Simulated scan of single mutants.
Amino acid sequence: MLTAPGATVTLTIRGTPPATQYLESAAVLLPTSDAAQAGALLDALTGQDLAAPLAAFLKRPEVQAGLADGLSVAADPYTLSLKTAGAGLSLTVSLQTLSGFGPVPASRILGDPAAPYAIRMYSDFQCPYCQQAELEAIPTVVKNLPKDVRFEFHQFPLESLHPNARAAAEASVCAENQGQFFAFKDALFRRNDWQKAVNPSAIFQAVAQGVGVNTVTYRGCIADRAGKAEVDAGLAEASRLGLNSTPSVYIGNYRLSNPYDPASYQALLDFVRAK
């Protein structure tokens, strides 16, 4: 238990000494409804700039009305629970968890498909943030993938935002059917010449051919839209899980807050592994 001026902070730790320990959640009890103090403690606990948003949130009339019964709000990757406690304020911050992930075929898994820990990336080929993660973090993450961890790619094209995303996803399935998903994915994310094309199919075919895909078989797959069902299944899974942005990366049941930094993957993986 830690104390701050006028406040009590109780930490829930994962891990057992002398091994590395990780903060899983924290409960804060303030003697008054001091939004500034609550925000300062929240920043210290999470390492994020949440003080100003929390203060603005607590000033809203509907929030003030709901504090007596308690309410929760998402502040990715955390969940904040707030409730008045007499004249004071109770605040709990915990890492968001998610369960019910769907399986992906071994052709979209790097590492041992039976590995006990999973890094799951829900991605959109036309999403610039996905491209950033793919170029800045994923090569290092994959290169250093431990034997007990698998990397999964989940199809999540945001069609309303990215008009070529579905076509790219279906093309990747046609490459996947010939065992070249990851080669196609990596090559496509390295290119910027197709995102605004009216019809990027010729570029997709060139990328597929460049990674060794049989062109005749690939063309038949595209013509038959043989990848549609797989992409539809990915979209259905993302909808069922309540995902609404890309890249959405989960390690175990926990969402990764910074998918652009390889060190963030390792830190969360260490957290998930802690017993």
Rank of each mutant, 00 (worst) to 15 (best):
T84C: 13
P103Q: 13
G227K: 00
D224R: 12
C127R: 03
N199S: 06
Y22N: 10
K275G: 14
L256F: 04
I109N: 11
I109Y: 12
D270C: 06
Y250A: 05
L243V: 08
A65D: 10
S257D: 15
A7N: 06
H162T: 00
V231C: 00
P5Q: 02
K59N: 13
S160R: 13
S99R: 14
A36M: 04
L54V: 06
T20M: 11
N244K: 10
R219L: 04
A56P: 07
A229L: 07
V142N: 02
R219N: 11
R150L: 12
G227C: 07
L45H: 09
L161Y: 11
A19C: 06
A274V: 05
S264E: 14
A38R: 01
V73K: 13
A183R: 08
A44H: 03
G100T: 11
G39R: 01
A7P: 04
Q180C: 02
L58A: 04
G47R: 06
A40T: 10
R166Y: 02
G15H: 03
M1F: 12
Q132M: 12
Q48A: 12
G6D: 09
L98R: 12
V141Y: 03
D34R: 00
E152Q: 15
Y218T: 05
T97Q: 15
G6W: 05
L11I: 07
D76H: 15
V141G: 03
P53M: 07
R240A: 14
P200E: 09
L50N: 01
K228M: 05
E152A: 13
Q209Y: 05
Y254W: 09
L71W: 02
Q96L: 15
V9A: 11
G86K: 07
A183P: 04
L268I: 14
R273H: 08
V104F: 02
T97A: 10
L188A: 07
A208R: 03
N192T: 15
P5H: 05
L54R: 01
M121D: 12
L135K: 11
T8N: 03
A183E: 08
L161R: 12
A106L: 08
E237Q: 11
A165R: 00
S264R: 10
F181Q: 00
G70M: 04
G66I: 01
E237Y: 03
P116T: 12
R120T: 08
K83E: 06
A38Y: 04
S81L: 03
A55R: 12
A27Q: 15
A115R: 07
R190N: 14
D148Q: 10
A40H: 11
V63P: 01
Y122K: 07
T16Y: 13
G227M: 04
N244T: 12
Y78S: 00
A133Q: 05
I222E: 07
E152W: 07
E152I: 09
S172C: 06
L95Q: 15
T140W: 02
R108V: 02
A168N: 06
A55P: 01
S123N: 09
R150K: 15
R240F: 03
D148W: 07
L82F: 12
T140L: 09
D186S: 13
A65E: 10
A206Q: 15
A137Q: 00
V73M: 14
L80Y: 07
A38F: 05
Q64W: 05
P61V: 09
V9S: 09
L50E: 05
F182R: 06
F125Q: 01
Q155E: 14
